[in-house]
Design a protein around this nucleic acid. Structure first.
Ligand SMILES: [Mn+2]
Ligand SMILES: [Mn+2]
Ligand SMILES: [Mn+2]
Ligand SMILES: [Mn+2]
Lengths: 221, 221
DNA sequence: GTTTTTACTTTGACTACTCAAAGTATCTAA
DNA sequence: TTAGATACTTTGAGTAGTCAAAGTAAAAAC
């Protein structure tokens, strides 16, 4: 019962896509897009996963992880995020580049090595992007943060999480000191111009577009 | 020009088999046995590697790495051995189990991560079994040690290297304190009974069969 | 110098994964 | 309530890697 890297990727993306779209079934098109494969490829694979008892599949309806599929998905995500943190904390890689590295390593890490990494890192709760790390038991903390688009104006906020893995986006955020742990204050939100003015701890003020601001999640400091 | 894990394994085994058999060409049968595939599979793959310029192939003669193939092989071996040392030194895994782990990880480590690991470990020369680690440039130290079957009797020796990766064998050596770095003295070599008597630093004396003794390489202490 | 054995190569078939393109169900909109 | 668009499935084909078994060259034995 050892899953191929391909199957692990299907389960992982199935989980994350399922997470941020509260519908019963995930449409095949969404899954195919997330995996960057053609719809036909996704259909074929999902039927195989259904036969293996990892998903339930409704033709022309969509797909959903079973409890067993979800456990496997959470284990892959755990490996991915522990590895990301290891690469940043121990090896000193830039947080903007570790996602790509972890995409490969997550399929090569044994349970034993994962446990040792987790121990070395002090049983961390979050990866370098603020994404929660599932516990070895499969439990995943669900945190509800507001984004810079929704949080209160003028009140100091702490950045808790950054959504998205694009290297350029993350490098820019690093340059602007908009990383998890940093303190920021949203000064103004301009209507119609789609722009948010943010003051960082360093005192600098930056304008962010709505799509960027929505990816930065905060909590009152 | 990124090689698949399968191709990397062919190149790696080609290199090591080529090393310890000084013939011009490596017979296909040896390669097939080393990779645990059928001869037909090895033939097919070797023809592909020849087309890619990684080996030269003489039908019914044998196979040999080109300079390019050798560089790739050395890089894979470097990744394997650096990873093994990392697993022992940093994560605290047992030296008997790291080979299996490294077999998977060696294909998932980027050049950047490899460099960071090498740095973290202090640019090591050898892996936990005493196997030399190729330099980033591709240079591999060739060391000529005597085994416990050949070394001088009664003279203290330091264990420099242990050949073979079998978990049970390595666990036993660990229990007997016959690991790289340990000091030992060969007291007697019994003819006909195929047995060698070895005294360890702890003062205990152990009888080793010829095949085991031949795998333990030493140097006068 | 033939025969037999051994080592190797070739062939045909299979699994896992993928895409392009043709076919079909369902939803939307007139 | 039918026409068209959309989303999905099916089919046919291709790549990478593998094995079993049939075929062949070379070496060994006689
Ligand atoms: Mn990631
Ligand atoms: Mn992450
Ligand atoms: Mn090894
Ligand atoms: Mn080793």
């Amino acid at each position: 019962m050892t899953l191929s890297p391909t199957v692990e990727n299907y389960l992982k993306h199935l989980f994350t896509e399922q997470q941020d779209s509260d519908a019963e079934l995930l449409p095949m098109g969404k899954l195919a897009a997330a995996l960057a494969v053609t719809p036909g490829t996704a259909t074929t694979m999902v039927k195989t996963l259904a036969d293996a008892g990892l998903v339930t599949y409704e033709p022309r309806g969509g797909v959903r992880l079973t409890a067993r599929g979800e456990q496997h998905a959470l284990n892959v995500i755990r490996r991915h995020r522990v590895v990301e943190l290891f690469l940043v904390k121990v090896l000193g890689l830039d947080w903007s580049e570790v996602h790509a590295e972890a995409e490969k390593l997550e399929h090569a890490i044994s349970e034993k090595v994962l446990e040792k990494l987790d121990e070395l890192l002090g049983r961390p709760d979050c990866d370098p992007h603020g994404d929660p790390i599932p516990r070895a038991t499969g439990k995943l903390a669900v945190m509800q943060f507001k984004s810079l688009m929704e949080c209160e104006l003028g009140l100091p906020q702490r950045i808790m999480r950054v959504l998205g893995q694009d290297t350029g986006f993350l490098q820019t955020l690093h340059r602007l000191e908009l990383v998890p742990g940093a303190k920021v204050t949203v000064q103004t939100r301009a209507e119609f111009t789609d722009s948010v003015n943010v003051k960082t701890a360093g005192g600098k003020t930056t304008a962010l577009g709505a799509s960027a601001a929505a990816k930065i999640l905060v909590q009152p400091a």
